[in-house]
């Protein structure tokens, strides 16, 4: 891979992405169009996040990649390897040690700091897309701050189900202006969107970048009589005993046996390393999963 430039992208492409990132930070929640490049991995597999990460990385960075909260999911492994090869950066699985974290579908449990950057992979950046398929129309709606359609949709949920039937990619309003798709994170993660770190969102196939500066006001859309509720499985982690983390449900046998474990694998590991043991967990041993 030494034939390629640092972090794969050529300098002109990086400049174009960097300019888009700066405008995205200046207009929080607004989707900046950018000339997404064809990457050596498929669209829909993190090309937006990869381009944003490539434009941000410096040789001194420590890079972490998670998919579904886990460092060892195959696509996370593949993206981490890509940057090890093309940028020669150090990588880590420890949230606290990472300076840039690229994520798909989760926000780490451990609060991020001012020195960190969280890069999201985004499939469909337009929060209004499934209500209005036309980009021409949704762009108009954002410009006019016309979000009635979204409220109608959420309200229809309530009248049909008694609750808002959106469990992930739950729409938010940023700084009282733009409605934004936080990417398909579970709504459990929505309250974490107001954080100390810089958050960058990259949608490669859809050619959009958007951002949340630190401490930006991010409000999950709701109604006074149906306030937003961040939900998780009503269990503790069976490995580390955490009662505050988002849980994956794992099917154990044919008889309906199941256990609940932290989706954030580093969070779970560090808790177990600190001596926490869940209902079905064994004491932590260095080097064992």
């Amino acid at each position: 891979m030494s034939d390629y430039n640092f972090a794969y992208l050529d300098e002109q492409t990086k400049r174009m992405i960097r300019r888009a990132i700066l405008k995205a930070l200046a207009i929080p929640g607004y989707q900046v169009p950018f000339a997404s490049r064809e990457m050596p991995m498929p669209y829909g597999w993190g090309t937006g996040g990869v381009q944003v990460s490539a434009a941000c990385l410096t040789p001194g960075d420590t890079f972490k990649v998670i998919d579904q909260g886990a460092d060892d999911t195959t696509n996370a492994v593949s993206i981490r390897k890509f940057f090890e090869k093309t940028a020669g950066v150090a990588t880590t699985e420890e949230t606290a040690r990472a300076s840039i974290i690229q994520t798909r579908h989760r926000i780490p449990e451990e609060p991020l700091t001012e020195d960190q950057i969280l890069v999201y992979q985004v499939p469909i950046p337009e929060p209004l897309r499934f209500l209005e398929p036309s980009e021409v129309e949704t762009r108009k709606m954002h410009s006019l701050e016309e979000y009635g359609l979204m409220h109608v949709k959420l309200y229809e949920d309530i009248s049909q189900h008694g609750a808002i039937a959106t469990a992930y990619a739950y729409p938010v309003k940023v700084e009282g202006r733009y409605v934004m798709d936080p990417s398909p994170i579970p709504k459990f993660d929505n309250p974490k969107l107001r954080m100390a770190a810089i958050q960058l969102f990259g949608a490669g196939r859809e050619q959009r970048i958007y951002a949340l500066p630190p401490y930006c006001e991010v409000v999950s859309l709701d109604f006074e009589d149906h306030p937003f509720e961040a939900t998780r499985a009503d269990h503790d982690c069976d490995l580390c005993g955490a009662s505050d983390s988002y849980l994956d449900e794992v099917i154990m046998d044919d008889a309906g046996g199941r256990m609940f474990v932290c989706s954030d694998t580093d969070y779970c590991r560090s808790r177990r390393a600190a001596g926490h043991v869940g209902a079905q967990g064994a004491p932590y041993e260095e080097g064992r999963p």
Binding site: R18, C56, E114, I198
Partner: peptide, 19 residues
Amino acid sequence: DASVEAALAFRAVMRAMAR
């Protein structure tokens, strides 16, 4: 060293714009 110096400079500008 354009790719490295530009990357470091961009990070500084980004931090400034974000904060």
